[in-house]
Design a protein around this nucleic acid. Structure first.
Lengths: 201, 201
DNA sequence: GAGGGATGTTAATGCTCACTAACAGGGGTG
DNA sequence: CACCCCTGTTAGTGAGCATTAACATCCCTC
């Protein structure tokens, strides 16, 4: 029971376990509220073992945030490219984002709480990816609401994200399916509320 | 310039200055990212002077959060009581909340990021106040959408708060008036999207 | 079957930080 | 005018924590 008792090799399994634990713990207690030892304990090692996989705590947060930002941006691009017209693109973006925020609430939470604890470099990268994702939404919306100024659309998209991302804090007793439907309906209504007169059916 | 050079007496002026600085700094860097010395410097004293006004850092956060929660809850109750029917009550709640989130974004930010750093006691108190405020909204909505289950309405209200509170992170170049109008429109549409068929005009 | 890289472990190390001690000026009240 | 409370100040103090050092295993390759 002294030292070095492990010896598996399923590639970066420990690494991904650490990333998962980091997302969960950072979401629950905040970046500053989690210690290296907490992280080690969460993956069945001691704290310093972490340094065999990441250069430090900041880099760990960076890896989490860059990864989630990349996935969101990539997914957004793909959904829009595959969609058949802007109505369907918007629907796909909404569904995709909702799946994400219901499926990985920890990542969503960390993603918009911990930007300030990143390295300047990582923060720039994450911001760039976020901007790209937002522009994807804005482009789709612009096709549906040609009269609206682009700045308004951008603000609308950010507000819609606030709505969709509220999930981690407040799902309550609703099933995932029910919550998903509710968010879809609300998000859709909010984003298209720019038209002065909603047309029935 | 050695020691004790001050001597004003406008009552709790220093105290409110500290609370303001705390809201601003906690919003910008997070509770854990702000030191006692930062707080002292922000109000023109040194760090430890703070202990003449508050028993500690936790109590300071507690004072900020309890105060904002009380104000929101009280305001919500008053707006609903003074309103003429549920349509107008909802409108008033939306406008009130939007004013708040555009006018004091720091408080909004701290309010939903730092619950976890409160004393158990303060957390309970804040949660109770929040629940009361939410119920105010839910009651109004229930009158407008009698068919919807209360759990759905609660989730909808939380989601709408996410939308309205997104402001601090994302106002962009829009004027306050423009942003206010945009949020009002979106919030209204999102909350009333429960009706299966939106009726024109 | 010897060597070495990957991965852990425990024990420093050094910094940051909330909080406390000891001391001091200032002004209102007796 | 003497006292005393209010509010500051500077110098600890002790705990927590990221990171590094030194050392130990395991398994894979030659």
């Amino acid at each position: 029971m002294a030292a070095g008792t492990q010896g598996q090799r399923p590639a970066g399994e420990r690494r991904t376990a650490i990333l998962g634990a980091a997302a969960r713990l950072f979401a629950a207690h905040g970046y500053r509220g989690v210690t290296i030892d907490d992280l080690g304990r969460a993956v069945g090692t001691t704290g310093p073992a972490l340094y065999r996989h990441f250069p430090g705590k900041e880099a760990l947060l960076g890896a989490v945030l860059v990864d989630v930002s990349e996935r969101l941006a990539r997914r957004g691009r793909a959904l829009v490219a595959d969609a058949d017209g802007p109505e369907e693109a918007l629907e796909a973006l909404l569904r995709g984002h909702i799946d994400f925020s219901l499926g990985e609430p920890d990542l969503i939470t960390v993603h918009d709480r911990e930007l300030g604890n990143l390295t300047d470099d990582d923060r720039r990268r994450v911001r760039r990816l976020q901007r790209g994702y937002v522009e994807e939404w804005v482009n789709v919306l612009a096709a549906l609401r040609p009269a609206a100024p682009r700045a308004d659309l951008r603000a609308s998209v950010h507000a819609a994200f606030g709505l969709l991302n509220s999930t981690p804090h407040s799902r309550g007793p609703l099933s995932r399916a029910a919550m998903s439907a509710l968010l879809l309906r609300m998000g859709h209504a909010a984003l298209l509320s720019g038209e002065s007169t909603p047309r029935p059916s």
